[in-house]
Amino acid sequence: MAVAVIGIVRARNLFVVVMLTGIYSLLAATIFVVLDAVDVAFTEAAVGAGISTVLFLGTLALTTSEEKKPVHNAWISLAVVAVTGAVLIYGTLDMPRYGDPAAPANHHVIPEYLEQGPEKTGVPNVVTAVLASYRGYDTLGEVAVIFTAGIGVVVLLGQWRAHRRRDERAEDEA
């Protein structure tokens, strides 16, 4: 994955970048399977490797596929990134170790989900039970987000007659 990412950073041809991103997503999905998150893996594969790639390709078809060489100084961004990374690393120092069953994340609310969830909802897939019922409201929000994005795309890319006029006017002003 790291290789894919380095490739993404370095590559200037955007098709390559997009393909690498798709590979990156697929790799992520396999890791999700390894980490027992089958639902997530399924979704990541469908979305990250599928839909996102299609979207990117669509965009590239409509725009351009070569990135110009960046001209500005990279030091500031590197510094920001380095600081953020350092804070994260610092934060992980006290994290529970990988796969530790005793980690606080795995207690508190989880036993309820695992033991009561299937009985109360009649759904053995705990992920679905939590997603749709315990935290159903989050899912409602999620649908609203998708809905918003749909509206956004309609607004932005719809063939509105007035758009044309508007953009021409903008061109004139420039």
């Binding site: 998150a37 997530v40 990541e44 979305v47 705990v126 992920v127 939590v130 997603l131 929000g141 994005a149």
Partner: peptide, 22 residues
Amino acid sequence: SNPLPHVLILTAIVVGVATLAL
């Protein structure tokens, strides 16, 4: 494994793709 992060990430993936589309 802990199902809660899975749930959250399912939601987050969707949010991510929505952002991407927009």
